[in-house]
Design a protein around this nucleic acid. Structure first.
Length: 572
DNA sequence: GCCGTTTTCGGCCCGACTGTTTTCAGTCG
């Protein structure tokens, strides 16, 4: 039985949901959630670790019981404790947990009184008014529940980072332009640069909070003002993105920013450390009893805790706290470190700009090289290049390189990996290229074994340089195809293959977790935009967000190298 | 259910808000 880390994490989360509804010890619930997070963030297949005989209790939040549970799940594909609980409790209750305003207690109440186990039944009892007979259910709560049911029926309410970004930027400048506003920052997962964000949390330091609130709720893209209070206001934008505005005193700005930036797991870890010293950290500051030790800035907060400043992208409790204490945090890669883009398209295939336009746009961005990597022949819908056309393209590139100054165009290809693992163009062509990307563009539904064998075989081609958009997922639309990532990593190491972080905001794969794992294996990566026009070269920043979340430094990426060094890496 | 140079048992981050109640439970971030 083969289960991925995500599937195992999912079982633990289901367990936590049901335990919660059952009214079990909340710390037990938390233990399952913590374990789920550990598994999800592992970056290495739990199955592999187990096969190699690793003691799973060494993993944070996994003790004897959960280690046994993992073993059972890996061997049988089943988690008996969960199965048992599922029999005890009716199906469907966990769906109700997703509704805002409904927690375990109220769900239990609804079930005991009316036997409610579904969104439909819930809506019906709410609309008929019967629900008011329950203690604690008043008109406001019922209205909230009905709204929640509507929302729960719509799928997926997280927003891609690039979708949220213009709203975040616009709101920030809208607010900072208002009189009396001293500081504005968008915190939350947006500040941590997660690939998707649930809502926007905006912090404001202002002399005149009340008039700032009034100004905020007048922002033109607001659909609904949910609440307006003395320290917090919540609105929903027309695209259903929720925005919270919170007022903070200047002296608490750092601790508030830290608190609202999260992640929750990171915060808990820091607060625990404070408790161990007999201190307390909350959103107002750092305290020793009643004595205030600080809180004006995040730098000060971390310094009080005896550690280095931790960049928001790292705050996921994936080892950054320990690293900060031991002064071994990575010096994260920055846009200024990037010397070129290794995955771009031109009009020769499905791009919208000429090679020259792309090259000049790359030069404008301060790059010294740009690889043109149009599609290969198999991808006919994208006018993929065959041998004849690619040779013609080389003539154009040679001529351009004669003419252009300050930028070098590299000859590349985004070559299809065919179903049998062979490359879409012959070696006689591949060997003349500066950069060969390999990519999977069809037959996404092969079994894990077949898909892995296909890619590994392609990587064994001696001209294969970079594995492009390695997992093929499209955020919110398409899952990753099945690949055994530890085998892929092993092949990369063996064959000197570079892994791409594709900077298209709906791709962003490798993701942060695998990027970190690849780095730890000593595999090199490239952040590339896959740009199909000149403007999309600016997607680089999205890719770098993901790279930074994956702990990558300048030295982990190949497209931070000067051209001569890069060429050496690419010639295997 | 996890975890431990204060503990193998007794803790487990911390506070605000909402709606309901009449002093606070439940939920949320």
């Amino acid at each position: 039985m083969s289960l991925s880390n995500s599937e195992i994490a999912d079982l633990f989360n289901q367990m936590a949901d049901l335990l919660q509804i059952k009214g079990e010890n909340p710390f037990k619930v938390r233990a399952y959630r913590n374990a789920a997070r550990t598994v999800q963030n592992l970056g290495k297949s739990l199955e592999d670790l187990h096969k190699k005989g690793m003691d799973l209790t060494k993993l944070p939040g996994i003790g004897a019981d959960l280690s046994d549970a993992i073993e059972e799940i890996l061997q049988t594909g089943k988690f008996s404790k969960l199965e048992k609980l599922k029999k005890e409790l009716p199906q469907g209750l966990d769906k109700l947990l997703a509704i805002e305003g409904l927690g375990p207690k109220r769900i239990r109440q609804l079930y005991d009184a009316f036997g409610i186990t579904s969104l439909e039944a819930l809506a019906q009892k709410a609309e008929s008014g019967e629900i008011y007979t329950l203690k604690g259910f008043g008109p406001k709560l019922v209205e909230k529940i009905l709204k929640g049911v509507q929302l729960a029926k719509k799928a997926g309410h997280r927003f891609r980072f690039d979708v949220a970004k213009p709203f975040a930027e616009e709101l920030k400048s809208y607010l900072s332009g208002f009189e009396g506003v001293m500081k504005v920052e968008v915190a939350g997962s947006y500040r941590r640069k997660k690939e998707t964000v649930g809502d926007l949390d905006i912090l404001v330091v202002a002399k005149n909070w009340e008039s700032v609130t009034e100004w905020f709720v007048k922002y033109e893209k607001i659909k609904e003002v949910v609440s307006k209070g003395p320290t917090r206001s919540t609105v929903i934008l027309r695209n259903d993105l929720q925005v919270d505005l919170r007022s903070v005193a200047g002296e608490s700005y750092g601790s508030a920013l830290h608190y609202f930036t999260g992640s929750k797991a990171h915060n808990i870890k820091i607060r625990k450390m404070a408790v161990e010293r007999g201190w307390k950290i909350n959103e107002y500051g750092v305290f020793d009893g009643k004595k205030r030790l600080g809180g004006e800035s995040e730098e000060q907060l971390y310094s009080l805790m005896g550690m280095e400043y931790i960049e928001p992208e790292l705050r996921e409790d994936r080892g950054e706290v320990e690293a900060a204490v031991e002064h071994r945090l990575p010096d994260l890669v920055r846009l200024g470190d990037i010397k070129g883009d290794l995955h771009t398209h031109s009009k020769w295939s499905d791009g919208h700009a000429t090679i020259e336009q792309m090259a000049l746009a790359a030069k404008e961005r301060g790059y010294s090289y740009l690889a043109v990597t149009d599609h290969s022949r198999h991808l006919t819908v994208a006018k993929g290049l065959d041998e004849k056309r690619i040779r013609k393209q080389w003539e154009e590139i040679d001529a351009l390189n004669e003419r252009l100054e300050g930028i070098t165009v590299l000859k590349g290809i985004e070559c299809d990996i065919l179903e049998d693992g062979s490359m879409d163009l012959p070696d006689s062509v591949l060997k003349k290229l500066d950069v060969v990307l390999g990519a999977v563009h069809y037959k996404f539904n092969l079994s894990k074994k077949e898909q892995t064998r296909r890619v590994v075989k392609a990587m064994q081609n001696r001209y294969f340089n970079i594995f492009a958009h390695p997992t093929g997922r499209i955020i919110g639309h398409r899952n990753a195809y099945e690949l055994d990532m530890s085998e892929i990593f092993a092949a990369c190491k063996g064959e000197g293959v570079i892994l791409e972080i594709n900077a298209q905001p709906e791709r962003l794969d490798l993701d942060d977790i695998y990027a970190k794992a690849a780095k730890e294996e000593g595999i090199r990566l490239a952040v590339s935009t896959d740009a199909h026009d000149t403007m999309s070269l600016d997607f680089m920043q999205y890719g770098l967000n993901q790279a930074r979340r994956g702990w990558l430094q300048k030295s982990d990426l190949v497209n931070t190298l000067p051209l001569s060094a890069l060429k050496k890496v690419l010639k295997k």
